[in-house]
Every structure is written in structure tokens, then in C-alpha cells.
Write a protein that binds this DNA or RNA. Sequence first.
DNA 1: TAGATTGTTAATCGATTAACAATC
DNA 2: TAGATTGTTAATCGATTAACAATC
Lengths: 212, 212
Amino acid sequence: MSKNTISNSVIRRLPRYYRFLGELQANGYVRISSRELAEKMGLTASQIRQDFNCFGGFGQQGYGYNVSGLRAEIGRILGLDKATPMILLGAGNLGRAIAAHIDFECKGFVLIGIFDSSPEMVGEKIGELEILDISGLEDFCRKNHPVGAILCIPKEAAAKETDKLIDLGIRAFWNFTHYDLKIDHKDVAVENVHLGDSLATLSYRLNSGNEE
Amino acid sequence: MSKNTISNSVIRRLPRYYRFLGELQANGYVRISSRELAEKMGLTASQIRQDFNCFGGFGQQGYGYNVSGLRAEIGRILGLDKATPMILLGAGNLGRAIAAHIDFECKGFVLIGIFDSSPEMVGEKIGELEILDISGLEDFCRKNHPVGAILCIPKEAAAKETDKLIDLGIRAFWNFTHYDLKIDHKDVAVENVHLGDSLATLSYRLNSGNEE
DNA sequence: TAGATTGTTAATCGATTAACAATC
DNA sequence: TAGATTGTTAATCGATTAACAATC
């Protein structure tokens, strides 16, 4: 469908475009040129045009880009026009934070189930959802067909669950475990989020970034 | 100090090396060759050697790298051998999750203060620390000299606080606001964490990654 | 029409990979 | 010493930037 393959660098920039276009739209912008957008985002106009043209021409010569139209296109490319059903494994602080985040700030996803293995949490409510015991995971998946799983559980548990989850139809993992999740199914997507790594790079820049 | 400037790609890989070396060490590895490490990490041996040589030779010809020695070097490069004092702004779920994360999984940092503006939270304890009212921020900073600030507050609050925080000596921001924090002080480091962007790229790969 | 700005091709730059001499 | 593996230079690859013709 898309022209050949899109490079990872481009894919990583798409959500940022989406965000900025959303803000522009909220501020009443109707059109914007690549030059102006570049300035706001700290990119070059060339790069922006190259990026958008990976997916076909969204602009109009002499005019620029229609803000809401372009935003909608990028949303569609990212798959944010769907409501992908997700389950959350692990209802600790991080899990709860992520759950709230999804509800308020992430278009394109619906959290449909929350699981934890600790008995004292089971039955508790997070937003609209009741925390379920992990033992009910299989039944739940067979009935409700979640597509994505958010892993906010310890590494060992994650390693144990992933194969089963794939069998149950999960095709995307959002992994907050601080270990890299390696999955060899070619049609299963994994996004590893390493908060510790992120903080470590900040530490690097804090300590050595300004020595020169 | 460091040889010229280190490219961003290299810096982003350092924490991952650090993590893998930690696991190797835990598994009893004493030495490892670039070839073997490459295999485990899904990189090339060439890249690994290039990366390490940005900082000087840590290996030994014919032998490879000493796991614990190399790990210590990388930790030092990242500044994880220090105990950088941090404050947390915003004690919602995400803030609490991050606070726990730092205590348990992030070497090199100590959380010394937690602030929130909502009166019902003030006084509550998170781990060893009591949540303080945001109005006490200035006094606290003058007394305790935190170096980094973790922003788990709404965008507007973040925009309002950053200048003051810089004046108070903050030199690193770990920003969880879903807006890009732009700071023009050249000696202030910023790491923007965009969970929504991360999820959106997962969505892209889920939806279009496997069409070809 | 004239001006603006895209879409796209060509040039540059930087990062990754390959190769190999140095050396433990 | 012979074998292994680094450190480092050279070659390749990919991504970014520049340029400009197409066109709204």
C-alpha cells in the first residue's frame, strides 16, 4: 500500500507532526507552509516535504498544506482513526498512569481490560474498568479480542506471558519492562519503552554535554 | 574532555550497552567480544567497536572487553556514578510511577523532593518523601540544590515553572508533558518523553508494517 | 499573469559496515 | 608463536539538505 518501505526516522517523526498540527489547528491555523512548520518544529522545510511525500502529495503548490486535512491524513497513516482494543497487564503505579494517559491523551486506542496477579488489587476499579485476575486472561481474550497489550509487569512475567498472548491474538506489545522484548513473529509489533535509558541520556548531556 | 562531540545515535545506544552488560555480568560473564555482544544485541561488531572507541579503547586485542570494567566505564560516561539530586513536580499516577522507578531501577539519581499543587495530596508520603506544596519550591531549592527536575504536571504549569527552576539551579529537565519543552539556555539539558508518540509508532507498525 | 510553494531530483553529509594492520 | 580480536581507516549506505522545475 504505502510506497515501498518508510524509514524508521520518518515513522518516528510522524507522531510529532500530528501533535504540532493539532496545536496549530487548536490555534486556528487553516493552512501552513513547509517553511513555517519547519521553523516551529526545528526541522528543515525540505525534510518536511520529503517526509510527507513518502505517502503521496498532501500539499498544494503555491498554497502549502491544509492543517486539518494534513493532520487527518497523518492520523490515518498512524492508524489513529481506529479504536484499537488494548489490555493492560500490571496495575501498579506505572500501569495506572499509562491507563489514564491512554484514556485522556491517546487517540486511536481503547483500554478494554486490566489484569494483575496480586489478589488485593483484583476487583478494584481504575476508571470504568475493574482489575481482573490474570487467570482470566485467556477467556477474556477469546471473548473480547484485544489487539494490543501493555506490559507493566516484571520482566519474568512478561517473558512468560508473551507467547500465550500472541496465540490469543495480540499483535502489538507496548513494553515498559526494562528489558528488551524480542519476538520473532514477523507480524507482531513491539515498542520497547525504556524510561531508565531515557534518564541516562539526560544524565549524559547534563554531565558532559556542556564541557566543550 | 570527550573526543570532539559524540553523535546522538551513539549516546542513545550507551544506556542499552549499559543494560546488556549488566545482565551479562549478572550471568557471570567476565569477558565478551564485540562479535558476541553484537549478536546478543542485534548490532554489528563494527558498530560496537566504533561506539566504544568514541571514548577511547576499552578493549584488549585478542581478548575482547572486560564486562564489569566496560560497564563501569559506560556508567561513568553516562554520569551514573554520581547521585544526581532530583525533584519531582506532579504527584499523580505518572509522577508516582516515575518516583518508584527511580528508586528501584535508575542508578545515578536520588529523588530529594516531591511537589504538587493540589492541597489534598500535600503531606501524603511517597516512599520516604512527603509531598510538599509547590509554594515551598523556591525555599527548598535554595536549601537543597536539586540539579534535575521531573515534570509530571500539565503543560501550562510546566511552561510557567521552567524559567524559575533554571534560576534556582535546575540544569536538567525530564519532561513527561506531552508538549515539547523548548529551553534556550545552552547549559540546560532537556529530555522529552512522549508516551503518546511511542504508542502512535506502535500503531503505525501494527497497521501498516506488515502489508508488504 | 506573477508569486508562492510544492513535489522531486541531485548533492551533501553523517552514520554504518567492511577491511585489515596492530597487538595482546 | 599462532590465534583472536581490537582500534582505526576506507567504502558503503542511507538520510538530510539544497536546488529547481512543475503548478496552483
